[in-house]
Design a protein around this nucleic acid. Structure first.
Lengths: 127, 127
DNA sequence: ACAATAGGGGAAAAATTTATCCCTATGCAA
DNA sequence: TTGCATAGGGATAAATTTTTCCCCTATTGT
């Protein structure tokens, strides 16, 4: 596993939440687990853009941060189920708000994202 | 500037908001600009953990994504002021909610973050 | 002359994150 | 027997982000 070389900044609430939520797929993982997709393979099917590997890693981090708990059923083929802890559950409304904002501003967002992809020359306001 | 090699995924609201908000210091920049710290040097003083360079870069991205607008006063020494657009302003409640959650769970978060830093062996639930 | 302030950006290094590929194991179905 | 599904991890490569260092403009104050 990757060994951190710098210590994280933990000065404010945003730093703190960032430590546990900053990861490309973490919010989606929490969201889908909350929706009932609890098995790794189900989550991978819900998030096909992520590699299998990174989902495993981020699930493990979420578990270490006690946002999800993992239940391993000792059967073959293996069966694993993740579920939200109360702590993780308390984040769902916030993740919902983020997703809602994104959905509500879908059109505008696609526009500015596409524009920025071609980094146009922005016309500055000069007074 | 860094030239992207892969195209972003824009499948859902979370992808979209991630495109404009995913950056270590972006939410803090929006927050402080909203609080009235509008000049680059003020922002740098409010966020001393970030390098000057990266704040400039992320401010430029926020501007390209139309979350902030930049006003350059053609005076010497130069004076620049950022302000939130209506679009950026509409994110403030969400950023506030994130920060609040972080503050409310300050103690617990420090605990799990510190624990994970030493990656302990997690005791799995087995049934 | 020199330092400090204000704003900005190039180049390269370092840190971090994400992707790719390969390997373990077992049971079930064609 | 081969192939697929299940779950996961090591090693390594690639992509991306952030930091560090240095340079530039121009003014004010010492």
């Amino acid at each position: 596993m990757y060994e951190r070389k710098t210590t994280p900044n933990l000065n404010c609430g945003l730093d703190l939440i960032g430590e546990v939520l900053y990861g490309k797929w973490k919010m989606r993982l929490l969201w889908f687990i909350n929706e009932g997709y609890q098995r790794p393979s189900e989550l991978q099917r819900k998030i096909p853009d992520a590699s299998r590997r990174v989902l495993n890693i981020q699930l493990k981090e979420l578990e270490e941060h006690e946002l999800v708990s993992k239940r391993i059923h000792p059967v073959l083929p293996p069966k694993v189920e993740y579920s939200l802890t109360d702590f993780g559950l308390s984040l769902i409304p916030i993740i919902g708000a983020l997703g809602q904002w994104g959905d509500k501003n879908d059109h505008k967002l696609r526009e500015v994202i596409t524009k920025a992809l071609h980094h146009p020359i922005i016309c500055e306001n000069i007074d």
